[in-house]
């Protein structure tokens, strides 16, 4: 009975949403702010990827908020899961194919992740995508050999320093540019690697922070014992 009522509720909700969607004009976005950003961003910020200039220059405060949310989620997850016992029995190592593939994939994933982070202001990509790939790079060997001790302190140090670097760059923008997280060092030559001022540095900090955070959180998930002895 509850299922049928739920279906009725969903049908009513969908009907209301479709009435609203009928009024929306798909394909003709108003773009009041977007139009201005599209015209001003290549000259002002100098990044070839306009979405990067929105994420790190025009709406950089939202990115700082997102880093704070990620930090809160990862810290809370670590607190909830707790520390594993030192003598807890571990899963056996995976087969030969998986171990060899993990050893081969680790440098490749590291390289691809760093490439995506560093070229974030030129091509689609950036700190978040590259950070996720870096987290996967550190986690795949842990999947193949579950017994390896994951050094949480090193990752925590990297995460803290990367987050601090982001905020320090923002404060330097406040001191020298007048606004918090103002891009410094000028636009530069569009399309070259050293363009868009401090944006590549900010994305590097974001990428390292996201990668270290997610790798640490998943490692804690992997070490958790769901059955108390």
């Amino acid at each position: 009975m509850r299922d049928y009522l739920s279906l009725l509720f969903i049908a009513g909700l969908a009907f209301l949403l479709f009435i609203i969607a009928g009024e929306l004009d798909f394909g003709n976005a108003p773009m009041r702010v977007g139009q201005g950003i599209n015209q001003a961003a290549p000259g002002q910020v100098g990044a070839a990827n306009i979405v990067t200039s929105v994420v790190l220059a025009y709406r950089a405060l939202d990115t700082l908020g997102e880093l704070a949310i990620l930090f809160a989620a990862a810290t809370a997850g670590g607190l909830v899961l707790g520390r594993p016992r030192p003598d807890a029995p571990r899963d056996p190592d995976a087969g030969f194919i998986l171990r060899t593939a993990a050893d081969l994939l680790f440098p490749l994933l590291l390289l691809v992740g760093l490439f995506v982070i560093v070229h974030g202001h030129l091509t689609p990509g950036g700190g978040f995508q590259g950070g996720v790939i870096l987290a996967a790079a550190f986690f795949v060997p842990l999947l193949a050999r579950p017994g390896t001790r994951f050094r949480h302190t090193g990752f925590a140090v990297v995460e803290g320093l990367a987050g601090a670097a982001f905020i320090v760059t923002g404060l330097l923008g406040l001191i020298y540019g007048g606004d918090f997280l103002q891009p410094l060092l000028g636009p530069g030559a569009m399309g070259s690697l050293l363009s868009a001022g401090t944006l590549p540095l900010l994305y590097m900090a974001v990428g390292l922070k996201v990668g270290a955070e997610l790798a640490g959180l998943i490692a804690r998930l992997a070490e958790f014992e769901a059955v108390e002895p």
């Binding site: 979405v51 995506v116 996720v132 790939i133 996967a136 998943i218």
Partner: peptide
């Protein structure tokens, strides 16, 4: 393309790994 890259990496990659690992536990 930015959003597509993020959704593919996160949704199909990392989220699946997190869920599968938790299911194993």
């Amino acid at each position: 393309p930015d959003v597509a890259l993020t959704e593919a990496a996160v949704g199909a990659g990392l989220s699946g790994v997190i869920m599968a690992l938790s299911l194993r536990r």
